[in-house]
């Protein structure tokens, strides 16, 4: 992994401003994404995954606001830019050419009154005004063919396509302007497992071919283990552990990561006892002074309630847990 950095996220925080006070949905998120890398982000519902996605793509709408941090983007040519500080006008030129998104509900992501092909050609011609109508249509045909849709489906309206076709066409759409980064928000939740495998295989193959980086958000850790190079585990708006897929799977450090791993059956290993994580995620409007996972943690102790643990490098991964604090007498660093 010596590829240059594509995206450096540094201390990113996102607040939802509500009449009852603000809720911090993403708190002090930092990571580096390299060119061509697939970073998986896993967590329960409400852990701030989708908020992170809209913050990264600068698509959030009130009441969500980015309250702190930087998102430094390194273009292939040119100076690094902080996306948080960019104006909407400047962002618009970057959108889709550098930064594309595949959203969760393919049902709702395509304009119901526009033909599929037209939803490709408008973005193609917006970012390349020299492209004429026929050439744009031709290019749209090439794009959908990459995801296994016949170009003669281009004149169809979204409601005439199957769920899997819609989802795959959204992936093709994301690649329309050859972006550096594709952000995917649970793109496979609405399709069956067979289609899910096909889509993941296609994402991997297209990544090999075009070399874009991916931030892939899902609640399904088992899926990420097969897809991602690195995985970040989110809990209550914070990254609690980040590391390579293999390390996270075989040597999880954070008790929450362990809990997540042990709550689904392994695909290629002998069966082991499954266990869930008792309790439910905390209220983000009223954060605990210490570790947010404390109340549900099997290894919680007094030190957990004192301060929010920072991310520390432990062996190959980074983990935010007092169990790995060298000053903590309870620490069992090599649990």
């Amino acid at each position: 992994m010596t590829d240059p950095a594509l995206l450096q996220v540094d201390g990113l925080s996102v607040d939802y401003l509500t009449p009852q006070g603000s809720a911090r949905a993403c708190s002090d998120i930092s990571f580096t994404l390299r060119r061509g890398e697939i970073l998986g982000v896993a967590g329960e519902s409400g852990s701030g995954k989708s908020t992170l996605i809209t913050a990264l793509t600068r698509l959030q709408r009130p009441p969500a606001v980015t309250s702190a941090g930087r998102i430094v983007y390194h273009p292939a040519d040119g100076e690094p830019v902080d996306l948080v500080a960019q104006s909407e006008r400047a962002l618009r030129r970057r959108r889709w050419r550098q930064l594309a998104i595949v959203m969760q509900s393919a049902m709702d992501c395509l304009n119901p009154v526009m033909r599929l092909g037209a939803q490709f050609t408008d973005v193609l011609r917006t970012h390349d005004p020299s492209l004429d109508r026929a050439a744009a249509w031709q290019r749209a045909g090439e794009l959908v063919r990459m995801v296994g849709i016949a170009p003669d489906r281009l004149p169809a309206y979204p409601h005439e396509l199957s769920g899997g076709m819609r989802q795959r066409s959204l992936i093709a759409l994301a690649l329309a302007c050859d972006p550096d980064l594709v952000v995917m928000d649970e793109p496979t939740t609405a399709v069956d497992v067979v289609m899910q495998r096909q889509i993941l295989a296609q994402v991997l193959r297209l990544r090999e071919r075009f070399g874009f980086a991916v931030v892939f958000v899902t609640h399904d850790l088992s899926l990420l283990l097969e897809l991602a190079d690195r995985i970040a585990i989110m809990y209550a708006g914070r990254i609690v552990e980040i590391g390579s897929s293999a390390d996270l799977y075989h040597r999880p450090k954070h008790p929450y990561t362990k809990g997540l791993r042990d709550s689904f059956p392994p695909l290629h290993a002998p069966l082991r006892e499954l266990s869930g994580i008792p309790g439910s995620p905390p209220d983000l409007r009223d954060p605990l002074p210490g570790c947010a996972f404390g109340p549900r943690c099997p290894r919680a102790h007094a030190a957990c309630e004192q301060a929010v643990p920072p991310l520390r490098t432990v062996e190959a991964q980074d983990v935010a847990c007092v169990l790995y604090d060298p000053q903590n007498p309870e620490a069992t660093a090599h649990a």
């Binding site: 026929a134 170009p151 295989a201 897929s245």
Partner: peptide, 29 residues
């Protein structure tokens, strides 16, 4: 390194591109 991440292992049957592309929107409906 990814566990079971060999893309060929889960290759799909959808790809070989069918010949002939539609040159423009057709009034099929």
């Amino acid at each position: 390194m990814r566990p079971a991440a060999d893309p060929d292992a889960i290759r799909t049957t959808t790809d070989p591109p069918p010949a002939g592309t539609a040159p423009g929107p057709a009034p099929r409906k």
